[in-house]
């Protein structure tokens, strides 16, 4: 392992993370809702009337975020390992299906679940971190890029 100090951004990461935690905290204190993105988006897609209003409002805020932050990069930029459309499509399918059956993603299990000290969420986080790391390692080896 080599740590890439040149790209290490501790202040932006901590600060951005704190904003995410604040957002999750506000939603939980204010309305006892969990700021889990896959749950919010997935429930909207399921068409469940109950709770549709607050979910749409949250998603509207999320989608509007790139337009209210002046000067910050909006686009995601290129993936490190160039992603073709078929790969992107498969990745989206796996993420959508996986987060639905596991009932959460980086936000619901990662931020909110761990903050609630949920054992389920800890298991989920360890699983998606591990499989994400294995996946990227395989991509790097296939790409022939030197580590």
């Amino acid at each position: 392992m080599t740590i890439d100090w040149a790209h290490f951004t501790p202040l932006a990461s901590l600060g951005g993370g704190a904003l995410i935690g604040l957002a999750a905290g506000i939603l939980f204190i204010g309305s006892r809702r969990i700021a889990g993105i896959s749950g919010i988006f997935g429930e909207v897609l399921s068409g469940a009337r109950d709770g549709m209003g607050w979910r749409l409002a949250f998603l509207a805020g999320l989608l509007a975020a790139p337009w209210v932050v002046p000067g910050l990069a909006v686009g995601g930029g290129e993936a490190r390992f160039g992603v073709s459309w078929p790969v992107l499509f498969v990745a989206g399918l796996l993420t959508g299906y996986g987060t639905r059956i596991a009932r959460g993603c980086t936000s619901g299990h990662g931020v909110c679940g761990l903050s609630r000290l949920s054992p389920r969420s800890l298991v989920a986080v360890l699983c998606f971190m591990a499989s994400g790391m294995v996946t990227v390692t395989v991509l790097r080896l296939l790409s022939g890029e030197a580590s």
Partner: peptide
């Protein structure tokens, strides 16, 4: 929970995107 999270991790690693 485990299967779903592993599948999500693969999608996350392949694309660099999680849902949010």
């Amino acid at each position: 929970l485990i299967v779903g999270s592993v599948l999500f991790g693969i999608g996350w690693g392949l694309s660099g995107y999680c849902p949010g």
